[in-house]
Write a protein that binds this DNA or RNA. Structure first.
Lengths: 153, 153
DNA sequence: TTTTAAATGATATGTTATATCATTGCATAT
DNA sequence: ATATGCAATGATATAACATATCATTTAAAA
């Protein structure tokens, strides 16, 4: 993601936060930028290491955990539960609303691709949930895959 | 799950293992029984505690990890990645083959319900994967839900 | 029985996550 | 501007989780 795209995401993030009364503080913005630039899933400790290396400051682990949680709550990053890592949402700067995500995670090189689920597909999943008497809270699907490159070799 | 059902699962598990050349040892069977009786997701350390309490023996954590991995490989238990816990497969004693599972996890009381996905639904998910140039390895869908009881209160 | 490989145990240690309390910084009202 | 109060962050310690290494046991096969 290029510099100007990152900036567009940050601008959009600021706008969305202020609209919903959330505070995108300096630290939070720094972490978000770092996530956008990384374009790969990062664990809180990896974020700490990256931050400390770049900023020549010292962020304690608990701050990283808190900030990543905040960004996930604000839907600016997604939490990949299967890996306990976070990745920047690839649609921050999109204006149009988007359906739930399907995360394709390469088990070998750990690349992650976020693709949208068609509303129809989501509805079918939802249907299974309802007929079991459950209510869906957070539709997110993480799939163990091989990416194109890794499946060739 | 009643005693006789548990026994049916264990019998079925023994049969399936010997058919595929896997060794369902005494320890592994003990852990599987424990999982079947629990009917709830358990972490390796929870398994250790339960085992040590019941058996008055001492199983080290690494053994629990290994045994749970084995049982998951053998498809006798499922690994819930989002919680890093394991739960006994609810279809061990079924003779008919079954499609991929959809796990409904109650965020409040942690109840887990394992429902089957219709092959059609699985195919649609698969289609998204393919068109992104990925290959699916392990189709498992874990959904953050509220169960019937918890959504009432 | 002897041999061999797989399974388990003992132990240590690395990694990840969180709890608690102190401090800082920012928004609001005065 | 300044004071006040709450949210955010930092410092620190420790709990919880996961794995690496090597020794020992167990069970299958020769």
């Amino acid at each position: 993601m290029g510099v100007q795209e990152v900036q567009a995401c940050l601008d959009s993030a600021h706008q969305r936060c202020s609209e919903s009364g959330l505070r995108l503080t300096q630290k939070r913005e720094q972490i978000l930028r770092l996530m956008l630039e990384a374009e790969a899933p990062l664990s809180p400790y990896e974020v700490v290491d990256l931050y400390n290396a770049q900023a020549e400051q010292s962020m304690p682990p608990n701050s990283a955990y808190r900030i990543l949680d905040f960004l996930a709550e604000a839907n600016l990053v997604h939490k990949l539960n299967s890996a306990n890592k976070y990745i920047a949402c690839s649609h921050i700067a999109c204006s149009h609303p988007h359906s739930a995500s399907q995360f394709l995670i390469c088990s070998q090189c750990k690349t992650v691709k976020e693709v949208m689920m068609e509303p129809k597909l989501l509805k079918e999943i939802q249907k299974n949930v309802s007929s079991a008497g459950f209510k869906m809270r957070h539709p997110s699907v993480e799939l163990e895959c091989l990416c194109g490159d890794c499946s060739e070799s």
